[in-house]
Design a protein around this nucleic acid. Structure first.
Lengths: 190, 190
DNA sequence: CACATCTGGGTACGATCGTACATATACCGT
DNA sequence: ACGGTATATGTACGATCGTACCCAGATGTG
């Protein structure tokens, strides 16, 4: 479980733990990944972050505020890694290989990201506030792709990444890396 | 709101409403679409289906059993329509147009299916019981596609449908039908 | 017509939830 | 040195939840 990095415990009152809010957000992401948004409660997050229950309503303006902060951090982290991958590519072929690595290694890597992505999508499908998180995410992905491909191809490639990642994660078979590269080659063929 | 199709009301005791279970399942899907799995409760579903609360535990073995029944029905319905679309195509070009229609009209049509799909995916990402629902769904989709395309192309096409549908639904822009056809043409080009 | 049986429903219980709010503590201006 | 104030916490309340349980009443049999 998570330890409380601050050894204190004595200075109960004030201004002693500046990154407490950050810890709560991270704890919230772990709770969502483990129990889903459905099973996420102030109490579980507080216990996970080793903060008292009252801190929840103090740092966040209700449950929705907390969820948005957490999922925004998640999406930003994914985007950061995406951009880093793409920045490492010098030409179109390198970009294609970077995209393959994203599909094969990143999203498919662990269940955590798969679960969190879908939790976010589910909220975004209903609530515009969450949809703006996914919109920003997609915006950054496409911008990174447009460094190497034309705008239309970038959009299609982004959609392909999405679909392949989901299907490969939810299928439990079809683990052939070659078909990913085939798909990328076809979709980026003008 | 939903009316109770049976006019009775007098025959309270027994064996008077044979499709009560079906009504509950449909009501459950509507509640999920409206409030999400998070906001779905026995009470809400019972109210929606115009059945007493006690009927919930009578017809279903707890909340999970109800959710699985509901989402199975949803996925089956989507698969049925998918197969119908594909069955109407006589050649590869017709199949391509059918796929375009699926993306442009079906999934993107209303928010209801978008929401329900993601709710299902979210559960599937965590729970194997729900994952078998999505696996069966994908199986049928690919089988239908393989009537017109080779297996690998069918898989890629299926993934492309997924990604394009999601991105187009979650983006709130990018409504150009042409790019969908472009993507299909590229991915089905051997 | 009477009785055993089984389907279905009303209700109450225990648990859990979000959040408001009073309180306590530490910092800071004076 | 000493309030005043911002920061943080513990607790308690009202609402809602899933589900177990018991009873009502219809059904089929003798």
């Amino acid at each position: 479980m998570s330890e409380q990095p601050r050894p204190v415990g004595s200075r109960l009152g004030r201004r002693n733990d500046p990154d407490r809010r950050d810890r709560i957000i991270d704890a919230c992401l772990e709770v969502i990944a483990h129990s889903g948004v459905t099973g996420t409660s102030h109490r579980k997050v507080a216990a996970r972050a080793c903060v008292p229950l009252g801190a929840m309503t103090y740092y966040f303006d209700g449950m929705d505020d907390l969820l948005q902060a957490a999922l925004t951090r998640f999406a930003t982290g994914i985007s950061d890694r995406f951009e880093r991958r793409m920045a490492g590519a010098s030409d179109a072929d390198g970009a294609r290989e970077a995209v393959a690595a994203i599909i094969l290694d990143d999203v498919f890597g662990d269940d955590r990201e798969l679960v969190l992505s879908h939790e976010l999508y589910t909220l975004a499908a209903r609530d515009p506030a969450y949809r703006s998180i996914t919109t920003a995410w997609m915006e950054r992905s496409r911008a990174a792709l447009e460094r190497h491909f034309d705008p239309e191809t970038a959009r299609l490639l982004d959609a392909l990444i999405e679909g392949l990642s989901i299907h490969r994660a939810l299928d439990s078979r079809t683990r052939d890396p070659h078909e990913v590269r085939t798909a990328i080659a076809r979709i980026t063929a003008s």
